[in-house]
Simulated assay, not measured.
Amino acid sequence: MRKTIMISLDSFKNLADTPVGEFKLKPTSRTEGQTEAANVLWEAPNGGTSIGVWECTPGRFTADRTAAGEYCHIISGRASVSHVDGSNTREIGPGDLLVLPQGWVGEWTIHEHMRKLFVISADA
Rank of each mutant, 00 (worst) to 15 (best):
V53D: 08
L98S: 06
L97Y: 08
T31A: 05
D96K: 05
P101Q: 06
E70A: 07
Y71D: 13
A44N: 07
S29F: 05
G48Y: 01
D64L: 05
A124P: 08
H73D: 05
V99K: 07
G69T: 01
S82D: 12
G93N: 09
F12L: 15
G52D: 04
W54F: 14
R65S: 06
L100H: 07
W108S: 09
I110Y: 10
H83E: 14
C56S: 15
I5C: 02
M114L: 14
T62N: 14
T31V: 04
K13Y: 08
T66G: 11
C56I: 05
G95V: 04
R65H: 14
S29P: 15
F23W: 14
H83D: 15
R78G: 09
L25F: 01
D85I: 01
S82M: 13
H111C: 04
F61C: 11
H111I: 13
G33T: 08
T18L: 09
T62V: 11
S80W: 13
P19K: 07
I75M: 06
T35Q: 15
G21W: 04
T49E: 10
K24M: 07
E22V: 09
G52S: 01
S76W: 04
A79H: 09
K24Q: 12
D10F: 03
A44I: 00
R2K: 06
E32L: 09
S11V: 02
L15I: 00
V20A: 02
L97A: 12
K13E: 14
D17K: 10
S50G: 03
I92V: 15
H73W: 08
H111G: 07
K116T: 02
F12A: 11
N39I: 01
R65G: 03
G106F: 00
M114R: 00
A38P: 02
L98R: 07
H111D: 15
N39K: 10
A63K: 03
V105G: 03
